[in-house]
């Protein structure tokens, strides 16, 4: 049973139609907790991309020898192994960014998005398709995190990636930790609104 989508479609699917943060509403902890700056979002996005791609490929390779009854523990241990790898790599080569992300890198192991993609996609599809699906999901997560970080950093600190853009701080509220809930909620509502408007204009054209 193979998917009929091309690799490009799989990647786009992960970024837009099934965006992990805004569409599937999975892996919300980091989206609220550490999306205060673009840089944080980018770093955790890279870590998740790495774990997602390697876990998907690993499961896709071994899918025929995994007994269905122990599949969930197998997925969990596979993810845990790759998380350990990225955790140690980040701690060794990017200690500053690693300190900022704190416990969240280790918590990638419990992110629902990764287990879900292994269960829904990688355990059924070919290695090739699983690789591209992993890339799509990882990029989609990263895009969501960067979008949140963009809004919060620009409105809260007036900077982007650490560079001063606005020259003043519009609303400090947005970088305070709890504001993550408000920003995620409001942005989801905003995206829903865009979709409604888009569909309405399409219906009018037809």
């Amino acid at each position: 049973m193979a998917t009929d989508k091309s690799s490009f479609q799989l990647v786009i699917n992960g970024i837009l139609n099934e965006n992990p943060i805004f569409r599937l509403v999975l892996s919300m902890c980091p989206a609220v907790g550490i999306s205060t700056t673009v840089m944080n979002g980018l770093m955790l996005g890279i870590a998740v991309l790495f774990v997602q791609v390697f876990s998907s490929v690993t499961i896709a390779i071994f899918k025929n020898v995994i007994h269905p009854r122990i599949r969930i523990p197998t997925y969990t241990l596979t993810i845990a192994t790759w998380v350990t790898v990225i955790d140690m790599v980040l701690a060794a080569y990017l200690p500053e960014a690693y300190a900022k992300m704190g416990i969240f890198v280790k918590l990638i192991v419990a992110f629902a998005i990764i287990t879900m993609r292994l269960e829904m996609f990688a355990s059924k599809e070919s290695v090739d398709a699983s690789f591209w699906d992993g890339i799509g999901m990882g990029l989609g997560f990263m895009a969501g995190m960067v979008a949140l970080g963009f809004v919060r950093e620009l409105l809260g600190l007036g900077t982007l990636l650490g560079y001063d853009v606005l020259g003043f701080q519009p609303l400090l509220f947005f970088v305070l930790p709890f504001a993550g809930f408000f920003v995620v909620g409001l942005m989801m509502g905003f995206f829903n609104y865009i979709e409604v408007v888009y569909k309405r204009s399409k219906a009018r054209q037809a």
Partner: peptide, 18 residues
């Protein structure tokens, strides 16, 4: 508002709890 129904409004409420 229909665009906020379900999850988005739940996030705003959670923010107030926080």
């Amino acid at each position: 508002p229909p665009t906020f129904k379900g999850i988005p409004i739940a996030f705003v409420v959670a923010g107030q709890f926080a």
